[in-house]
């Protein structure tokens, strides 16, 4: 966590020097705070072995909410660091290819929600950390083409970007739906955890599915709405009648 904060601090200062806005700077620090809050007490320990709903909150924070805010503050230094030629450029082109990014994010999302994987990894600190780190890394990969956008791709227009974001986040909605309709708890680690007086493991799982579904949709559709109005505003601006030149 400290390493992330230091690395972000260095890059964010560079971003400010390169003209990044104060709002983006503070959005980035908010993301660092979100990551810290989702890994620390109470969400971290609860997610590690007690509540699937806390685990769902962690997923949303680490994969969907924090990465775009973080990248927003450091997109200029990151874009400047991407090689513009040679093998490095080819590697960057491949890794930030939206299709690759989308597939990678969904592979991580699916794998880290398979019950046998969760039950095997979550009981150990290292395993739980690996899942958290994968979510965060997957989130950075997912959001990179949208927020950093380097290397640039001519075909990755605003409508395609919106389609990319919508398609890339469909899988987690499906997982949430399975959690919502399941008749039995899917994850042994939460089913066999010391009892939580407030709700049963199955109710907790339904809550987790609901959180993933609703909060996830709120994040994605909120961002899609912003993207849409920015794009439609730009299109309207381009089509607006030009004022006649003054004599």
């Amino acid at each position: 966590m400290l390493a992330l904060a230091i690395a972000f601090g260095v890059l964010a200062r560079r971003g400010r020097a390169m003209g990044e806005s104060r709002l983006a700077f503070w959005a980035g620090w908010t993301a660092v705070g979100l990551v810290w809050q989702s890994l620390d007490w109470p969400i971290g320990p609860l997610a590690a072995g007690y509540l699937a709903s806390a685990h769902a909150v962690q997923f949303l924070t680490l994969a969907l909410a924090a990465p775009p805010l973080l990248l927003l503050a450091v997109r200029k230094p990151l874009a400047a660091a991407v090689p513009t030629a040679g093998r490095g450029h080819a590697v960057a082109m491949f890794l930030t290819q939206p299709i690759i990014a989308g597939v990678l994010f969904n592979l991580i999302t699916i794998t880290t929600h398979v019950p046998s994987v969760v039950d095997r990894f979550m009981p150990s600190q290292l395993g739980a950390f690996a899942i958290d780190a994968l979510w965060f890394a997957g989130g950075l990969v997912l959001w990179w083409p949208l927020v950093v956008g380097a290397p640039q791709r001519a075909w990755f227009s605003p409508p395609v970007r919106m389609l990319y974001l919508f398609m890339a986040t469909l899988v987690h909605t499906g997982i949430a739906m399975v959690m919502l309709i399941s008749r039995f708890p899917m994850y042994g680690i939460y089913e066999l955890a010391p009892p939580w007086e407030v709700w049963s493991p199955l109710e907790d799982q339904h809550l987790a599915g609901g959180v993933m579904e609703l909060a996830g949709a709120a994040i994605i559709f909120g961002i899609l709405t912003v993207m849409f109005f920015r794009w439609s505003g730009g299109v309207a601006g381009d089509n607006a009648p030009k004022a006649p030149p003054r004599d």
Binding site: E191, P195, S200, L202
Partner: peptide
């Protein structure tokens, strides 16, 4: 019992209820 008994009993109960 802090953990084993309530979890074990509640799991049987949850299935019997269905």
């Amino acid at each position: 019992c802090p953990d084993v008994c309530p979890v074990h009993v509640s799991n049987v109960a949850a299935v019997l209820h269905k």
